[in-house]
Simulated scan of single mutants.
Amino acid sequence: MEYKGLAVGNTIKSLRIKKNVFVFELAYRAKISQSHVYQLEEGSNKMSIDLLYRLMDALDTDANTILGIKEKDEVSVDERLKELNPKIKETLTELFLKTIDGVEK
């Protein structure tokens, strides 16, 4: 297995934003500098196991989520959508778009 820094960094950033955590808050919680957080999010810095655990605590998540590791039998939503017959896919797409339009207003 290869460490994919940019993908991990994007996940960390997404989790941080989703949980409304500012960079300085994540840095404080994980006991690292703000520049270290930016480097992780940019994928330019790898993390130690110790830091992974601190990020798990700081972001209230698990290692698999941070590292982008799927369960072996877990199938992504995109993969499952590809398996649908075209008519059902079209119907679900229309429903999704109507839902999104309703939320945006």
Results as ranks from 00 to 15, higher is better:
E41N: 09
L84G: 08
D78M: 08
N10S: 10
A27R: 00
K70M: 15
R16C: 05
K31M: 04
E71C: 05
L55A: 04
M47R: 04
S44V: 07
A27F: 06
M1I: 03
V75I: 14
K18P: 06
K46W: 14
D78E: 15
I66E: 04
R80A: 03
D50K: 08
N45E: 15
Y28A: 12
E74S: 03
S44A: 04
L92A: 02
I69K: 13
S48Q: 12
S76D: 14
K82H: 13
I12F: 03
V37I: 11
P86Y: 11
H36T: 09
M56N: 11
S33A: 13
F24G: 01
E42C: 02
Y38I: 08
D57V: 04
A63F: 03
Y28H: 11
K70E: 15
Y38Q: 06
L95T: 13
E71H: 11
D50W: 09
E2H: 08
K31F: 05
K72Q: 14
S44I: 07
A30K: 01
T61S: 02
R16D: 12
K13D: 00
S76L: 09
D62M: 02
T93F: 12
L40T: 06
V75M: 10
I12W: 03
Y38T: 08
T61K: 00
D57N: 12
M1D: 12
E71Q: 15
F24D: 15
D62R: 01
R80H: 07
K72S: 12
G9V: 00
K98L: 14
K19E: 10
L15Y: 01
I12Y: 01
F22V: 12
E104M: 05
K18M: 14
I100K: 07
L52N: 02
E2R: 05
E71I: 06
E2C: 09
V37Y: 00
K98P: 07
K72T: 11
D57A: 07
K31T: 06
M47L: 15
Y28M: 12
I100L: 14
D101V: 02
E25V: 02
Q34R: 12
K46E: 15
E104S: 02
G9M: 05
F96I: 14
D62E: 07
K70G: 10
L40K: 04
D73C: 10
H36Q: 11
N45C: 12
V23W: 00
S35A: 09
V103E: 13
E74H: 04
K70H: 15
R54C: 12
S76I: 06
L95R: 08
Q39V: 04
Q34M: 13
K31N: 11
Y28Q: 15
I17Y: 09
L55Y: 01
I69S: 06
S44Y: 11
N20W: 11
S14V: 01
E41P: 03
A27K: 02
T99I: 07
E94S: 07
L52S: 05
N64L: 05
E90S: 07
L15C: 01
V103W: 10
N10M: 10
Y38C: 02
N64S: 08
A58V: 09
V37M: 03
L59P: 00
A27Q: 07
D62V: 01
K46C: 13
T61Y: 03
R80Y: 09
